[in-house]
Design a protein around this nucleic acid. Sequence first.
DNA 1: AATAATTTTTAGATTAACCTAAAAAATAAA
DNA 2: TTTATTTTTTAGGTTAATCTAAAAATTATT
Lengths: 219, 219
Amino acid sequence: MAISFTEENYLKVIHRLSEATTEDISTNAVAELMQTKAASVTDMLRKLAEKGWVNYQKYQGVRLSAEGEKIALSIVRKHRLWEVFLVDKMGFNWDEVHEIAEQLEHIESDQLVNKLDEYLGFPKTDPHGDPIPNKEGILPELAYSHLSDIKTAKTCKLMGVAQDSAVFLQLLTKLNLSLGAKLDIQEVNEFDRSIFVSINDAAPIFISHEVAKNILVKV
Amino acid sequence: MAISFTEENYLKVIHRLSEATTEDISTNAVAELMQTKAASVTDMLRKLAEKGWVNYQKYQGVRLSAEGEKIALSIVRKHRLWEVFLVDKMGFNWDEVHEIAEQLEHIESDQLVNKLDEYLGFPKTDPHGDPIPNKEGILPELAYSHLSDIKTAKTCKLMGVAQDSAVFLQLLTKLNLSLGAKLDIQEVNEFDRSIFVSINDAAPIFISHEVAKNILVKV
DNA sequence: AATAATTTTTAGATTAACCTAAAAAATAAA
DNA sequence: TTTATTTTTTAGGTTAATCTAAAAATTATT
C-alpha cells in the first residue's frame, strides 16, 4: 500500500517512543516529537489504524502493529545506513548527518538500500552507535550500559550515545569522546554524580551526570 | 525561499522543454511531461511566476527566469551526480537509475552535493552521456552529433543518448552499445536510413534510423 | 474575415495534512 | 466521590496540489 512521507515519519516516531516503554504511546507524546498539535495526531492515528499499521482505540493511546513495526524498522535501517555513508564515505562529522539522513531515509528502493549496505561493508551500528536493523528487519540487541549507571572505578569503552542532537555531539567531540574511546573511570562523586575519568589515557577530567546519562558504554 | 518537490519538478520540466527550443513553452507541453492536466499547470505557473521563478503571461506560454534557471540546473546537477553514484558506486545498470535519481535529486544539502561530486571525481557527464552542471550551475556544452545525421562511412565514438527510457537503454545494451563504444560506420542505406555498422570491431550489424536518432556520437 | 478547432484559463470540488477552539473523556486532587 | 486538571477528540477551517466541466482566448481553416 502506498505510504506518504508524513505517514512514514509518524510510524518512525511511534517506533522511537515504543522503544523506551512497554506502555501505549500517548497522543501528546507523538505530537511533541512530530512538532505538531494533538488534534492533527488524532486525525493521523485514525488513518494509520485504518491502514492497519497501528492499533489505536481512542483515548487509549497507540501501538505499532506487526506491519507498522516492519515499516518503521525499514526506515530506521535506511536512516542509519545513510548516516554511515555520510560519515564514512562523504566525510561528514557525526553531528552533521542527522538532518540529511532524515531526508534520505524516505528514498524508496529496496535494491538501493541493500546495495548500500553491502557497499558500506554491512555495518552493525551507525556513527552514533545505534544498531542497524538487517534486511529482515531484525534489530540486533546491543546490551550497553549508560555511563551514568556505573558506580565504581573501572575501564569501559564508548559504544554509542542516547541522543544525537548536534550540540551534544559537538560537546563530546570537544571532550575528545568518539565511538570506541577508552574510558578509565577514576571516581564517581556522590555529591553531583559527576565522573572523573581519563579519556584515551589523557589526563582525567570531570564529566557531568547530565552528559553521562547520554553515553552508552561496554564494560 | 522555500520550494516544494512539486515546484522543483515543474521547473525541471520547463527547463527540459526549453533546451529543445527557443520558443515559449506551452501549458500543454508541461502538462504532458508532468503527467497532469492543463488546468493544474495553469495554477502552478501562476504560482511560480509570483515567486519569480518563471516569466508567464496567460495564453503566452512560459519561460524560466534567471533565478528559475539556476534552481533547475541545481536539480539537474543533483540528478546526474546521483546517477553516476548509482552506476559507478552502487553497481546499477544505466537503465535502472532514472527512477531512483528522480527521488534523490530532491535531497537538500549543498554540502552533500559538492562532497558527492568530489567523491565521484568531478564527473563531466552522467551514465547516459548528459553533461553535469558544475557548482556554479554552468552546463558544459558538448557538441555531439546524432548518429542519424551521419551520411557517409566513418568512425565515431558513442558519447551519449538523447533518451533514457529503460527499454531503449536495454536495447542498446543488447547491441553491445555503451558509452565510449567505437562505431565503424560501413554504409548508410538510402531506402530506410538504416546504418550498417561495426561495434567495437565486431561483425557489422544494422541499426534502424529510429535508434540512430537517439544516439549521440563524437566524430 | 468569418467560422471551426484547439488551447488555455476560470470556476468550483476534492484530498492530505495541518490548524484553532470547544466538547468530551480520563486522570488527579480535594 | 465530587471537583478540578489534563488529555484527547470533534467540529469546522485553511493550504497546496490536484481534478472536471465550462468559458474564454488563440490559432487554423475555409
